[in-house]
């Protein structure tokens, strides 16, 4: 497949499109170096005014977060990353119920023969049935975690050491039990305001400081063993539904933070 770079140059009020084949990538590189890079570098600075994270914080890796959890004694599910079916089988033998998740972004869209191709199923429970039928010995590095039986899930919006949390009861509904993003529009999961215990908040604040973030959305599980289990923190997590369903008024919190209360 030939990939084509399109360079857009604006002359006055005219727009001119140039189709440049890949061999001219040096043009886009030098534009990058002289124009885009300085701008991106600036966006990554910590400015002398209230801000919500830095531009580069959008790329904080999940695996890095789990490593840091070990440091601060924050529980997270046993995790395996492997390319081998044999490894996976051993893992399932030990942990019984295992779930596979994308390492980073769950959404997958491609273009095939001029049509839009979408892949669904971002997470899946690995049953012994699935393992039996799976014939490939190797696959691309994939993430597997021990499945945590939960009473409910917790989503918490964090900004400058303030937490606005909610509990999501997805267990009553078979459709949303594994991944609450399989929304049930007919009977949406119960979402209510929640208060994280101070001991957990302390650990999460430490984690955020280690990551250099002042804002993020936490995904946690409250397990059937009454434990708080960390899943991930998303620096650019959605907060609108959290704010609206719990009347947390996160919008005002953000506005006041950015304007220094003016």
């Amino acid at each position: 497949m030939i990939s084509v770079s399109i360079l857009l140059i604006v002359f006055g009020t005219e727009e001119v499109f140039l189709n440049i084949p890949n061999t001219n990538s040096f043009i886009s590189e030098s534009i990058d170096e002289n124009n885009s890079k300085p701008i991106v570098d600036f966006l990554n600075l910590k400015l002398n005014k209230p801000q919500i994270n830095k531009f580069s914080d959008n790329n904080i890796g999940k695996l890095h977060q789990l490593e840091l959890c070990k440091l601060i004694n924050l529980k997270f599910p046993e995790t395996l990353i492997t390319t081998s079916l044999a490894d996976l089988k051993k893992f399932v033998t030990v942990h019984k119920i295992v779930i596979t998740k994308p390492i980073e972004n769950p959404f997958s869209k491609h273009i095939v023969n001029g049509k839009d191709l979408h892949f669904f199923t971002s997470s899946k429970l690995i049953t012994s049935n699935i393992l039996k039928k799976y014939t490939s010995d190797r696959f691309q590095a994939s993430l597997f975690q021990k499945y945590t039986e939960k009473k409910f899930e917790i989503r918490s919006f964090y900004l400058n050491e303030t937490f606005k949390s909610m509990a999501i009861f997805s267990q009553q509904n078979e459709k949303t039990k594994i991944d609450y993003r399989n929304y049930d529009r007919e009977r949406p999961n119960r979402i209510v305001p929640f208060l994280l215990p101070k001991s957990i908040e302390k650990k999460l604040i430490k984690l955020m400081k280690l990551l250099g973030l002042n804002c993020g959305s936490f995904d946690l599980i409250y397990s059937v063993n009454d434990e708080y289990v960390f899943l991930e923190v998303n620096p650019i997590g959605q907060f609108q539904w959290l704010s609206r369903n719990c009347n947390h008024n996160i919008e005002r919190l953000i506005a006041e933070t950015l304007t220094n209360g003016e």
């Binding site: 509990a167 305001p193 929640f194 208060l195 009454d226 008024n249 005002r252």
Partner: peptide, 25 residues
């Protein structure tokens, strides 16, 4: 109607009531 859920006494304290503040921009 899913108006209620089960919990123990300790857990019940983690669930505050809904704020009745009204704010509109």
């Amino acid at each position: 109607n899913e108006f209620i859920f089960e919990c123990n006494l300790k857990e019940s304290k983690l669930f505050p009531s809904l704020s009745m503040d009204f704010d509109y921009p």
